[in-house]
């Protein structure tokens, strides 16, 4: 065997290029997570409003971005925005925009469920000692809602990481796209290139998401135990 497939990672700058692709995807993920989560927290709080109309409007917003597959959303924004709005957006900006809309929709549901999970006694007690609405959120709802929200949020983060794989479909030079280019260069020299490159990307995604999943499970158990001990 002249060439073992694994050697292709050490030829030229293949490995650094793959990691550069990962960085591109990572940047999009981080930026959209930061903006999307901030927006989602706000929307989640709004969705606990007393007004039925307000709740309905934001519920519809959430359902739309949850029901439509993300790949379809990416295509819709990628094709339609530049055409209709005359906006000259590159594919990475479109990706961030779509991710922010999607993440904020998902996050709003995480936050809403966490807030309504806080026990009624706590809220009533807060009101009884004269907290106003803002103070109620600051001292009762948000601190007590966090243990409910964090595992679900970490879960959302892993989903966002996995979803960055779809960015390939609108031409973002992320890891898989770079992988494809490397494979094309080696089709004759190393026929098993696709096996190695895709296998490598598979493992990279796995390691990243698995660590986050583990963390989320650990926190969930820890908080479940602490809550159990309180009662």
């Amino acid at each position: 065997m002249a060439h073992s497939g694994i050697s292709l990672f050490f030829e030229g700058n293949n490995l650094p290029r793959l990691f550069q692709g990962m960085l591109v995807a990572g940047k999009i993920a981080v930026v959209s997570l930061v903006i999307g989560m901030a927006l989602g927290i706000l929307l989640g709080i709004i969705r606990t409003s007393d007004s039925k109309l307000v709740r309905f409007i934001f519920r519809v917003y959430m359902e739309i971005f949850r029901v439509i597959p993300l790949l379809v959303l990416l295509f819709v924004f990628y094709y339609i925005l530049p055409e209709k709005m005359n906006a000259d957006l590159d594919n990475q900006t479109v990706s961030v925009l779509v991710f922010v809309l999607w993440i904020s929709a998902e996050m709003s549901d995480v936050v809403r469920s966490a807030l309504i999970s806080v026990s009624v006694h706590q809220i009533d007690t807060g009101k009884a000692i004269g907290l106003n609405r803002l103070q109620l959120y600051q001292y009762v709802l948000i601190p007590q809602g966090i243990p409910f929200a964090v595992p679900a949020t970490l879960n959302l983060v892993t989903r966002v990481i996995k979803t960055t794989s779809l960015l390939l479909m609108i031409g973002v030079p992320e890891m898989i796209k770079v992988g494809q280019q490397i494979i094309e260069n080696y089709t004759i020299k190393i026929p098993t290139a696709s096996l190695w490159v895709y296998g490598f990307i598979f493992i990279l995604y796995f390691v990243l998401c698995y660590l986050l999943t583990r963390l989320s499970k650990k926190l969930e158990k820890k908080w479940a135990y602490e809550n159990g001990a309180e009662e």
């Binding site: 996995k162 794989s165 779809l166 096996l195 296998g199 990307i201 598979f202 998401c209």
Partner: peptide
């Protein structure tokens, strides 16, 4: 299966 994207599973 839970910690990898479908796209890369399919490509593999």
């Amino acid at each position: 299966s839970r910690n990898t994207p479908l796209l890369i599973q399919l490509f593999f």
